[in-house]
Nucleic acid binder design. Sequence first.
DNA 1: GCGAACTTGTAAAAATTTTGTAAAAACGGG
DNA 2: CCCGTTTTTACAAAATTTTTACAAGTTCGC
Lengths: 126, 126
Amino acid sequence: MGLQTASNSPYRYQDSHLELDFVRKQASLDSHRLTLTRKEYDLLALLVENAGEIIPRPVLLQRVWGYSDEIRTRTLDVHVRRLRKKLGSYSEQYIETIFGIGYRFQPFRASQRFAGLGASPLAVGA
Amino acid sequence: MGLQTASNSPYRYQDSHLELDFVRKQASLDSHRLTLTRKEYDLLALLVENAGEIIPRPVLLQRVWGYSDEIRTRTLDVHVRRLRKKLGSYSEQYIETIFGIGYRFQPFRASQRFAGLGASPLAVGA
DNA sequence: GCGAACTTGTAAAAATTTTGTAAAAACGGG
DNA sequence: CCCGTTTTTACAAAATTTTTACAAGTTCGC
């Protein structure tokens, strides 16, 4: 055995709609190639690599743009918007805005169910 | 491991219009001999050998010209242009510009590719 | 609930970067 | 020298990125 499927390779992300190849730096949505600019890809890749986790704005600006905390810019918002556009109807589910903090990528879930009865999905610790 | 169909030798590339003989270092388009200069051939051969893969500009400049990353030159662009000219009407399909990264040779296809992400070894690393 | 202060969304313009192109200059073997 | 090849130059065109300006949404104190 020892077979490693594409879906659990560390060089690749895959869910039912979105696919990312971190080596070739390419993404596809529903088996259709997504044409992303460099910055768009970098941003998406960083979010996807940390799927399920909130990435604060300063961290995104640091890791994708190399910006220190002092710089005031709206380019992150604009890039998020363009990414969402290219993600089409899934964008709302994929890229989540954490107000006052940053953004979070969530893997696709077929049924947008709330996380059971006990734990609130809003418990983000911020 | 890469399958090798019987019709293809590693010393030769062939699709419905373009043919390259890596041993004789000759190319032909629609069965008509292409007269390429040495650099033109080297560039085309490198692209074709990695068909379907993006080759970053620094890699092309290194492998064809021996240039290190510091050197600023436009000779790659000029050579790509001359290659495209000699490839005639197919040039747009064959040699693709990956903005901000490099170039990619695509084998001729009557209908444009639909596939998502294929697994392939050559790293982009840009 | 209301409103001020702050944050994010959005569209469009502006700025920047990258590539395309033509032509001239430089190179190099014969 | 010649002549074909290669490289540089200078500018145009294209693509990307950032900024700007304002709309819309959120938080929080009162």
